[in-house]
Design a protein around this nucleic acid. Structure first.
Lengths: 242, 242
DNA sequence: GAGTGGTCTAGACCACTGC
DNA sequence: CAGTGGTCTAGACCACTCG
């Protein structure tokens, strides 16, 4: 029953890990429902209350979504409400906007020192680099440069990107089975270089937000490194602090 | 027992509200412990499990802090670990730094249209404006301009600010009984004006982060409006996304 | 050892969804 | 109506802190 202190882990934590393993293994895919609490309780040989606590925490971490009367679902970037989950950009003055991703380039390369460190790859491992522009209401607002491990995004190309309707993370999760779970961002202010200024329609040297993001999949595995340059002429980065 | 749908609110929510009322009323002050779960259960006439759920949520919102074996405590900005609760600034290259707030000015004024709107005051209501510099390792990194409702910060002056050791929010909570609970930030990139550039030791026109923050106390009451200009030469704004 | 929060259980009942 | 998550209870036992 009782465990010795060094390796003590509550039951609900172990249940959480088991459920995460199911997610990693693709037993339940994004958007699908997982078994009911009662079923999981039987399956894992614990009480429903313990399953409940495990699922509660996973829902708090946005891995699962509970819907009363319907079931518990695997979080998905396909849900349009999830579009702004990792994009903390809002218009300066109200209103909802149409957004559109315009891919510019996509090529393969070998990981340099920094990319290897951030993505936990070896020097020279294959990577994919994507450049794209994000438009709101037809106006360019963000230029992104995105570094991906080549290994886990086989077949990604400019054509694939151009053909796909929906967000990048939606594509990653549905075509490559790489769900984006968590991210860290580091934000600085920089001056627009010539090329970026042209893409964003601002003057060279204008202040831009530089948003560097490392995105992780299950098991805290880093699977994307991107740097976005945001024009804050008509938008701002919105954050809530608790 | 059961309540009709229009006004249904779970018991633990009502308990939460009761505890918040105790906090607002100053029954338990920041840093102090609240009664044990068992005591609260008796006091409110519910089971310990229900109190537990209420406290769990309040701990998740950073209103309370649980410490196994010791009790449950009211969150406080006096805790040095809370210093960076609302300051998402980290050095670009590792290391821990000494920080220091240097007050520059503090004067009284009447709320203009924008200040009145943000702080939910009437036009012309008394406000206090503070300007200060934040230093890290002796170097200026942030210039803040802070707007406060005069009503709830009586006696605040440059001398009070200069005499106080510790963070502003620590001062607000201990001297004025105004605990800061929650904040929203809107971040843009701007060019440094002459005066700010001098204060931060950067060139005029350098890109800076403009961080506009509205801070709230209990009951979502806005009690501070500040605009910070951050030099991101050696620091960046760090954010985690889930 | 006494007191605190943390875990786990079993069972009852409620609220919501969809057939 | 059956099935799901949501709430509430009562009680047992564990882990941590402190005197």
């Amino acid at each position: 029953m009782a465990q010795e202190s060094p390796t003590f882990s509550p039951l609900y934590q172990q249940i959480k890990n088991l459920i995460v393993q199911g997610l990693e293994a693709g037993e339940w895919r994004p958007g699908e429902s997982i078994p009911s609490e009662a079923e999981l309780a039987v399956r894992f040989g614990v009480s429903q209350g313990t399953v409940r606590k495990a699922v509660d925490e996973m829902a708090a971490e946005n891995l699962l979504i509970r819907r009363q009367g319907k079931g518990t679902f695997v979080a998905t970037h396909a849900d349009p409400r999830a579009f702004f989950r990792f994009l903390r950009l809002v218009p300066l003055s109200g209103g909802v906007e149409q957004s559109k991703s315009v891919p510019l380039e996509c090529w393969r390369a070998k990981a340099g020192a920094e990319a290897a460190r951030v993505l936990k790859l070896k020097l020279g491992d294959p990577i994919i680099i994507v450049r794209r522009v994000l438009q709101f209401s037809g106006k360019p607002v963000v230029v992104d440069e995105i570094y991906l491990p080549g290994e886990i995004f086989p077949g990604l190309s400019l054509d694939v990107l151009k053909d796909y309707q929906g967000s990048l993370y939606n594509l990653f999760e549905s075509h490559f089975h790489v769900p984006m779970i968590r991210a860290e961002e580091r934000i600085r202010a920089v001056a627009a270089d010539r090329g970026t200024a042209e893409l964003l329609g601002v003057l060279e040297g204008s202040p831009l937000l530089s948003v560097e993001r490392v995105t992780h999949s299950y098991g805290d595995k880093p699977v994307e490194w991107r740097r976005g340059l945001y024009s804050t002429a008509e938008h701002c980065y919105y954050n809530e602090l608790n």
